[in-house]
Design a protein around this nucleic acid. Structure first.
Length: 1000
DNA sequence: CCTGCCCCATA
DNA sequence: GTATGGGGCAGGA
């Protein structure tokens, strides 16, 4: 070993000079990291924990012997291990909480600190620590000196707090991953180059070290802000120009805290050093000394390697006598006090909820009325406890047949399916549960697997009926017209079963029952309803299958566990049905349930199954285009500006626009910076200036890309190659549907770029998409319910409703109307639907509050019926706790009487909006329920695919388009009848095209 | 890893 | 000013 001979004779002191390589080992950081990353290791002879020491010694050995083989790429000429001395540092004086609440190190790490010092000594390496200073400050100071002497610096650490030191000639070396951390890696971690890391950290703070930072700002936001504003002071100076309210307030309120944080985070590069940097020169190993230590630690393989490398005879070396402090640990009396207090709430857990208790037979209920039945059922439901031990696991066809026969005899049965996924289009049917009465329930396991983590793939668990055979026998029951099937959220099970050829009918859905009865009073989930109505908390899914990354699919759940869970769900569903179903007549929502809820379920299931074709290529091209356009826009913006600048920086942008280019209309913010908000840029763009237009485009594209073009392809079904959204029938208070996974009700349309995403929604070959949407349906509903003669007349005459409103309000003729005037009227019309406030209208139109008040006043003067309607609606809601749509759907607002004025005002606006939004939702529901039969009757094949609140999308063969259009329009326009005779006509615009954009 | 917040897409 | 769902982020487990 030739280098060994050389280093043995290396001088103790050697000046650092250009070309040298100074290695600064962050000893403390290494110890903590090794302790947590490496498996616990103890000395064989006495159990002394030595894992971190072992890791440290191996690391140091490797560094001294073969650093050029690591990511460092060079050997050290100088090397020191820097440790944290105990005691307070200057940071505690600036901010007493700094690192104050840090828990004491784990007991089995404590003795290793001393051992590490011994190890460094044994390696004959300089060991530096200084009371009152952190290791990081010493490292920062040595690094500065080394650089000034022209040497390269390798900081052996991966601590993010040291990343601020990275720069020319200074890198971090993560020896555990053998990775060098240079400027690129710092940017990856902090989003900014090393010299701005301190600014980012001072904003984001650090909960581990108790660096406060600014609340609500993490690394990402901090990086974005620092890139925009340059540095912390620049940002704080312009904080009141920040768009986001909360963020702005916090930056202003916590500015000083950020400055303090900066002092805590910034390392001191001028720490007084006891040991000059020259003294860190690599000294060379003393074989015997090192081996004595290693033998004492019982590190056998490292001892062997060292003995080979240094030609030292191991046998001839006595183990060193190493002092050990902190082991074994002393008993900590405070540990006992940590025991959690015994819960005293156990008894209350199974007690019925107040809601359910209040269901006891009230004295004023007349017998043999719907209300009496309801009261009895509720009392009975709470009285009968759920016994999960009484369920049967069906293992044979005989037993299955017996359950099926019982269901036929009874005439109704609760059903639930268990599957492998929440996505009904991809889920595998794993089992079925049935219930024929409270407490009478079974589970039929079909596809459960043996073993859970078995990589060899546990096969099918024994004693299960074959899935195909079970489906064959269940099908007659589930389709039998004489047996009512009861399920909770049936659309899911309906889809699963439909994929196996079973078309469930007739049915009730307890989720929809609850929704028709209690929309707005809380969720419609089964567990929630069970607690509310039965006073029983069902077994949570996560108790059966776990959660998060380690969550089991249901086929991996052991059958006995699965059985109780699944049968309970059927049992609970059955019991809920007994309680909820009689409430329909009592609460007078039977018709709502039977015409607007239940029949829509199969319609939606079919829509979801059909899915819609989304052109993956268009999306990926679009994604690329967006990326490219963004880059191009950036280049154009630079071109227009005449120089390169950060397009994301309002500060730089303001200087360019109003400083260099001298554009007019510049406004200054309070701090004197140019305002560059969207409104300002829109103004400039309207004056024909290119740069602001491009900048707005750029901002918009980055949004479209991440939310749509990059996310949608992931939803294309592997087999159908189409996108199958999932509609929720019971998610909103007003009666609207909602769409998720993916949400196809918020595909962009307002901007040209956004509409390109719609072009990716295409018809199948030989087909067209038809889009049919209601024109102004909510304003028409408003005209109807509030009985406003001018509005009704305008809709009958088919004239521009917003222009008419403006004409009424401002006394100007519709002909040749100023578009601004019409725009104001339009905003007010929408405002009315939303339960207008002067605050909201002033924001929408960017006018003063008092001006907005004037508009509203004038509007009410011209349309007094609307004010009457609004007042009447609020009064009705206060009296009943709910409002109703024109078809009788209820939307509950139990908090309408809140004593909190802003809460109450919010509820009032919602209550005003709900009958309008909800009636429109009812109308399109009615159209959807009737649509299929109407198309069949007209002998037209048109597949309904999507609903977007006031729009229906169909897929129709080319040669059927002309026949389909009038049928679709007619069904939609007549959807309210005969239940409600509207005072205004409903108008539908329908057209066909190859893609959704052109059809819309 | 989960929850809540902000922001933004739609009607 | 109404009604949603979702991406990204922060922050506390």
């Amino acid at each position: 070993m030739s280098d060994q001979a050389a280093s043995d004779t290396a001088p103790h002191h050697r000046p650092v000079r250009s070309g040298d390589h100074v290695f600064l080992v962050d000893g403390s950081g290494y110890i903590f990291r090794a302790y947590h990353a490496l498996p616990p290791l103890t000395r064989k002879s006495d159990g002394l924990p030595i894992g971190a020491v072992a890791g440290f010694c191996n690391m140091l050995w490797k560094l001294l012997r073969e650093a050029d083989d690591t990511a460092a790429g060079v050997k050290p000429t100088h090397l020191a291990v820097i440790l944290d001395a105990s005691g307070e540092t200057f940071r505690s004086e600036i901010f007493p909480a700094y690192k104050a609440q840090r828990p004491p190190p784990p007991a089995d790490l404590v003795p290793q600190f001393g051992l590490i010092r011994e190890a460094v000594r044994a390696f004959n390496v300089a060991c530096v620590e200084k009371t009152g200073f952190e290791a990081d400050d010493l490292i920062a100071t040595y690094a500065r000196q080394a650089r000034e002497a022209g040497a390269d610096v390798t900081i052996v650490s991966s601590d993010k707090d040291l990343m601020q030191l990275v720069g020319p000639g200074v890198i971090l070396l993560d020896t555990m991953k053998d990775r060098r951390l240079g400027p690129d890696e710092v940017v990856e971690k902090f989003g900014v180059p090393p010299e701005k890391v301190v600014d980012v950290q001072s904003l984001a703070g650090d909960s581990v070290d108790n660096v406060p930072g600014v609340p609500g700002i993490g690394i990402k936001t901090a990086a974005q802000l620092i890139l925009e504003y340059g540095d912390l002071e620049g940002l704080l100076a312009q904080a009141d120009g920040i768009k986001q309210k909360k963020r702005r307030e916090n930056l202003i309120e916590f500015a000083e805290q950020a400055r303090i944080s900066r002092k805590l985070v910034e390392l001191d590069q001028n720490t007084p050093l006891d040991e000059p940097i020259d003294a860190l020169a690599v000294r060379g190993l003393k074989g015997e000394q090192l081996i004595a230590f290693l033998k004492a630690m019982e590190f056998n393989s490292l001892t062997r390697r060292v003995s080979e490398a240094t030609s030292t005879d191991v046998a001839g070396v006595e183990p060193a006598s190493v002092p050990i402090k902190g082991w074994p640990p002393e008993a900590d009396p405070s540990a006992e006090a940590e025991k959690p207090a015994e819960s005293t709430e156990k008894a209350g857990d199974s007690a019925p909820k107040a809601d359910a208790v209040s269901a006891r037979l009230p004295a004023d209920v007349e017998p043999n009325t719907p209300a009496a039945v309801v009261a009895e059922r509720q009392a009975a439901a709470v009285a009968a406890p759920v016994d999960t031990s009484a369920y049967e696991t069906v293992r044979s066809l005989d037993r299955l047949d017996a359950w099926i026969a019982a269901a036929f005899d009874l005439g109704y049965v609760a059903v639930d399916t268990e599957t492998t996924s929440l996505d009904a289009m991809q889920a595998e049917l794993v089992g079925v549960s049935l219930s024929t009465g409270p407490g009478k329930a079974c589970y039929i396991p079909l596809l459960h697997q043996t073993g859970t983590n078995d990589l060899l793939g546990g096969g099918l668990a024994p004693d299960q009926i074959s899935q195909a055979e079970a489906i064959k026998r269940l099908k007659p029951l589930l389709e039998a017209p004489t047996v009512l099937k009861i399920a909770h959220n049936l659309k899911y099970d309906y889809l699963i079963l439909a994929r196996h050829g079973i078309h469930v009918a007739p049915f009730d859905d307890t989720m929809l029952l609850s929704y028709a009865l209690d929309a707005g009073k809380g969720g419609q989930g089964m567990d929630e309803l069970s607690e509310r109505w039965l006073g029983h908390k069902p077994i949570p899914f996560k108790e059966v299958a776990g959660s998060g990354k380690s969550m089991l699919t249901f086929d991996q759940v052991p059958i006995d566990k699965a059985s109780v869970y699944a049968a309970e769900d059927a049992d609970v569903t059955f019991r809920l049905w007994r309680v909820l179903k009689p409430r329909l007549p009592a609460d007078r929502v039977t018709t709502v349930y039977e015409t607007l809820e239940r029949p829509l379920l199969p319609v939606l299931a079919r829509m979801e199954m059909r899915g819609i074709s989304v052109d993956r290529q268009i999306l990926s091209r679009l994604s690329g285009d967006f990326a490219q356009t963004m880059a191009a826009l950036e280049a154009e913006i630079h071109e227009l500006a005449g120089e390169k600048f950060n397009v994301g920086s309002p500060k730089q942008l303001g200087d360019i626009l109003f400083g260099q280019m001298g554009l007019p209309g510049g406004k200054k913010t309070k701090t004197g910076a140019w305002a560059t908000g969207a409104d300002v840029l829109e103004d400039l763009a309207a004056q024909g200036h290119e740069l602001p237009r491009r900048l707005l485009d750029w901002r918009q594209l980055s949004k479209l890309k991440s939310t749509y073009t990059d996310a949608l392809p992931g939803f294309i079904h592997p087999e159908t190659k189409r996108v199958h959204t999932s509609y929720s029938l019971a998610a909103t208070t007003t009666g609207r549907l909602s769409s998720s996974d993916p949400n196809l009700q918020n595909i962009p349309v307002r901007t040209e770029e956004g509409r390109k995403i719609r072009t990716a929604f295409v018809a199948a070959p030989g087909h067209k998409l038809i889009s049919a949407d209601y024109s102004q349906i909510e304003l028409r509903i408003l005209a109807h319910v509030a009985e406003i003669p001018q509005l009704v007349q305008a809709f009958e005459d088919g004239i521009d409703i917003h222009a008419m409103t403006a004409s009424e309000m401002f006394g100007v003729p519709v002909e040749g109307m100023d578009p601004m005037v019409r725009r104001r009227a339009k905003a007010i019309n929408f405002g009315i639907i939303y339960g207008i406030s002067a605050f909201g209208l002033s924001n929408q139109l960017s006018i003063s509050r008092s001006e907005a008040s004037d508009y509203i006043k004038r509007y009410f003067e011209r349309f007094p019926g609307i004010r009457d309607y609004m007042e009447a609606t609020k009064a009705y809601c206060r009296e009943h706790g709910y409002v109703v749509t024109i078809f009788g759907r209820k939307a509950h607002y139990p908090e309408i009487g809140s004593s909190n004025p802003s809460m109450r005002a919010f509820m009032e606006r919602a209550a005003i909006n709900a009958p309008i939004q909800g009636s429109a939702a009812d109308v399109i529901r009615r159209a959807m329920v009737r649509m299929e039969a109407a198309l069949d009757a007209a002998n037209v094949r048109a597949d309904m695919l999507l609903q977007v609140h006031d729009e229906l999308i169909f897929e129709v063969a080319d040669d059927a388009v002309e026949a389909a259009l009038p049928v679709i329009s007619k069904v939609m326009e007549e959807a309210a009848e005969p239940a409600v005779r509207l005072r205004v006509p409903l108008k539908v615009d329908a057209r066909a095209a190859q893609n959704w954009d052109e059809a819309h």
